[in-house]
Every structure is written in structure tokens, then in C-alpha cells.
Design a protein around this nucleic acid. Structure first.
Ligand code: NAD
Ligand code: NAD
Lengths: 207, 207
DNA sequence: ATTTACTTGTGTTTTGATTAACAATATGTA
DNA sequence: TACATATTGTTAATCAAAACACAAGTAAAT
């Protein structure tokens, strides 16, 4: 199995399997069947088994998959290089929600820095994460070995900031601002916009 | 063209085309080429043209697509039944960010109600949207003809609330809680989890 | 022992979305 | 007019993901 060849869909599902297993299942049982995992996550059992196959994990015919082993295996695959440091840019409502959420969840992604421009927010820790002025981003990103940036700042500044962030050495950017980014090659970019999701829901909900 | 047959991917892209056009383009030009739209949204020109074809929209060989007409056409397709009322459940950080975001954007999705349990939040409007106690959800959903629900409340309550919301007649649910929902047939469900996105970014950013 | 019921693992098929290719069309130019 | 250029619209080819189908394993029941 060439791990880098795994389809995006599989990676997303692996993340969901793991969360489902660590959150709901591991406390009250040892094993789980493909159809159970599938039902929880709105998938088919075949797809679950196919994903298992892709990461080279096997279960038992009688008991399905051992939850602990499976979580271990998924972690080997998706956290392959261990812990990854994340910074959040813009500590408004959305930024705060995200920092809190990431701290609550079991994950190897650690929010190690926050950036803002508001003097009231800078130099005070938020949920024990230090908040810096955005002008120091280059230095802090290097010092703290930040790999992933989450953009939750106003759209006006987003593009310029993103370019600086990329230049500082970040290799993955999650963009929540409504501004489509044009980044240099080599930076993995993911964008999410709730309006797109909601318009889709509205469309398919109309029958 | 059977409008209900449009692939989910196309619907998502249509939403993005429209936002891109209304936000950035329509102020300073009349027409746009498929390759320009594509470059902005990280797509190929072929895909843009394919989407145009699917919704039965034509451009001109010399000038590409007329922006005003295209926006009009996209709106006919994705807002087919006009305005749709939305309610947000849970007015925490995430809920507030979403309400503000939806109000800022040009869209036919209107946030017409908010629900919470915190007495400090109830019966005060937030950004001029009324906030009700969650126990009144059935009545308010009917009165206000709410079609879409956005769940931004704590996970513990999410599943029970979702079932009640579905029963009250909502036909589309956007779930931001970390709890996977099991809903009755006929309710279109979309789930988003930033941790899945971030873990994906982290995975593909590692090279 | 044999049967039954249930599961995983995986080759095969199907589906459907994306990419490639190119003909048709419009415009500008020599 | 003939030619060069740039774009759309659409058919055909490609590709990948999902669904299907079933062999093979396992354990419990008979
Ligand atoms: N993609 C989505 O689904 C979605 C949803 C909601 C909001 N948003 C977007 O996310 C962003 C934040 O939304 P919010 O509701 O949290 O807004 P907010 O106004 O509450 O927060 C913005 C924060 O960014 C800080 N800021 C301003 N300029 C900055 C800069 N140059 N560098 C760093 N920080 C800076 C502000 O001080 C503030 O703390 C906005 O761009 C909004 O449009 C996206
Ligand atoms: N999917 C994602 O990417 C993502 C990101 C961040 C947070 N979240 C989730 O979104 C939810 C909200 O996050 P937050 O940071 O805004 O939390 P928060 O604590 O700031 O807000 C929760 C709000 O819900 C209200 N509430 C509590 N019980 C309720 C009930 N039964 N009915 C209605 N309202 C109720 C609370 O009064 C509060 O206002 C949480 O479940 C969190 O895990 C998801």
C-alpha cells in the first residue's frame, strides 16, 4: 500500500472512523462490525471494508474489527509524522469556537498559536494558547514550527496574510474566509464555506 | 434538463460561481470567461463549461458569459422556490459567527429564528433575529415556516433535538455538532466537521 | 459431523463525474 | 475574402469511487 495514494475520501472517512470509535465506542465494547460503523456514519459496509483493505487492516470473521487495533492503525496512517502544530488567525467568534473545539477533541493537531490585531486579545492566552500580533507571524511560525494555518480573519486581509503565512513555511491552509485564495504551489489548500453547504441543503431539501 | 438530477458537485459549484460573481466581478465588468471563473475557484475551464451546459446556460464565443444573466440563471436553479427560512440552534460562538455570516452575504436563505436555553440569550434579538427557548421549537418552526435547521448546540442534546426538529417539519439539517445523527427518511442531512478537514489538510500537507 | 448464520476480503461491474478533444462559431486582420 | 485567433458547446474517452456479488472463514446450533 502506498500511503500517499489514498484517495481524499478515504482520508476523510478514516478521520471519521477514528473519532466515532474513540468517542462513542471504545468505552463499552471491544469490537465493531463494518455495518455498524457504516450505519453510524451514513456509509455502506462495503465502503468501510474497502477502506480497511486500503490501509491494510484486517478484522475477524466472527467479531469484526478490534476497536483498539483499528484506532491504532488509522492513527499510524493519518498522523504518520506524529504531532502537528496549528495556528489560528483571527480570534473572533469563529476562531474561538474552533480553538475550543480542537482542544476538546482527542487529536494530534495542537493549536500552538493564535494571531490577531486587536490589542485586547493580544498577549493574553485564550484557553491557554498564546495570542500574538499578526505582524510577528513569521517569527512565531518558525519558532513554534507551525505547519497548518486556519484562517478566520476578515476577508479584506485574508489574501495578503495567506501569502505571508505560506512564505513563512506553513504547508497547509484551511480557509474559512469568503475570499478564494491563490497560493504558491506546494501549499495544500482547503476551503470551507457554510453558505455553499446551506444552499446545497436547501436545494436538495426542496422536493 | 431535469433540475433535480444535477450532481451535488455541480450545485456546490453553482453556489460558488454565484458568490464569486456577485462579490468580486459584477462591479467592474460585464462578462467573464470560463477560464477566469475556473482560475478563481480552483477548477478547470472544462468543468465550468460543463456546469453551464447542465443548467442550460450559454455564453458568447467572443465575450464569454454575461455575468448578470449567469447570476440570474444560477439563482433560478438553486433558489428555485424563492426564499427559504433557516433557524440556528445554539447561539454560542459558532452560532453567532454563522448568523452574522449569513446576514452579511447576499443569499435567499434568511435566518428567521434562533433557539437556545440560556435565559440571558432568550427573548433578546441577536443581530435583529429573535431568540427563543428551545422548548418552543415546534410552534415557532410552524409559525415561521422554517425549512432548514443549523445545529450549533452541545453534542449531548443534539440527537434528541434533531429528532424533534425533523418532526416539526424541517426538511434539511446542517449538523455541526460532533454527534452523527440518525434521522427519519426525507430529511436531507449534511454534516461538517472541521477536525476531519484539518486532519486531511495535515495529511496531504506532509510530503 | 453437518448445517446454518453471519462475517470479512476482494475481484468484478456499474455508475457517474471529470478530463480531453475537437467541431462550430464569432471576431479581428491582412 | 481568406486567414488567424480565441472561445464556447458537446461528444467521446478516461478515471475513480461505489456497489455488487460471492468465496472463504468462523462459530454456534442441531
Ligand atoms: N466559511 C464559513 O463558513 C464562515 C462562517 C462564518 C464566518 N466566516 C468568516 O470568518 C471570518 C471571521 O468571522 P467571525 O465571525 O469570527 O468574525 P469576527 O469579527 O468575530 O472576528 C474576526 C477577528 O479577526 C481579527 N482580525 C482582524 N484583522 C486581522 C488581521 N489582519 N490579522 C489577524 N486577525 C485579524 C479581529 O480582531 C477579530 O478578532 C470572517 O472572514 C467571516 O466572513 C466564514
Ligand atoms: N463541526 C465543527 O467544525 C465544529 C466546530 C466548532 C464547534 N462545534 C460544535 O458546535 C457546537 C457549539 O460550539 P460553540 O463553540 O458555539 O459552543 P458554545 O458553548 O459557545 O455554544 C453552545 C450554545 O448552545 C446553547 N445550548 C445548550 N443546550 C442547548 C439546547 N438544548 N438547545 C439549544 N441551545 C442550547 C448554549 O446556551 C450556548 O449558547 C458544539 O457542539 C461544538 O462541539 C463544531
Amino acid at each position: 500500500m502506498d500511503i500517499k495514494k489514498l484517495p481524499e475520501g478515504t482520508i476523510e472517512r478514516l478521520s471519521k472512523y477514528r473519532r466515532c470509535l474513540t468517542t462513542y465506542c471504545k468505552f463499552y465494547r471491544e469490537n465493531i462490525f463494518s455495518h455498524e460503523l457504516a450505519r453510524n456514519l451514513h456509509l455502506t459496509p462495503e465502503q468501510v471494508r474497502r477502506d480497511m483493505m486500503l490501509i491494510g487492516h484486517s478484522g475477524s470473521h466472527k467479531n469484526g474489527y478490534n476497536i483498539e487495533e483499528l484506532v491504532e492503525k488509522i492513527s499510524e496512517v493519518i498522523d504518520c509524522r506524529g504531532k502537528t502544530n496549528v495556528a489560528v488567525f483571527g480570534l473572533g467568534n469563529l476562531g474561538q469556537a474552533i480553538v475550543r473545539y480542537l482542544q476538546d477533541k482527542e487529536t494530534r493537531l495542537n493549536v500552538e498559536a493564535i494571531f490577531d490585531v486587536n490589542p485586547e486579545k493580544i498577549n493574553k492566552p485564550f484557553l491557554s494558547v498564546d495570542c500574538y500580533h499578526i505582524k510577528d507571524l513569521k517569527r512565531i511560525i518558525k519558532e513554534k514550527d507551525i505547519r497548518i494555518a486556519v484562517l478566520t480573519l476578515p476577508g479584506d486581509d485574508a489574501h495578503d496574510m495567506a501569502l505571508e503565512i505560506a512564505e513563512a513555511g506553513v504547508t497547509g491552509i484551511m480557509n474559512f474566509t469568503p475570499v478564494p485564495l491563490k497560493l504558491p504551489e506546494g501549499v495544500f489548500l482547503e476551503e470551507y464555506d457554510i453558505l455553499t453547504s446551506l444552499e446545497k441543503v436547501a436545494f436538495f431539501a426542496k422536493k
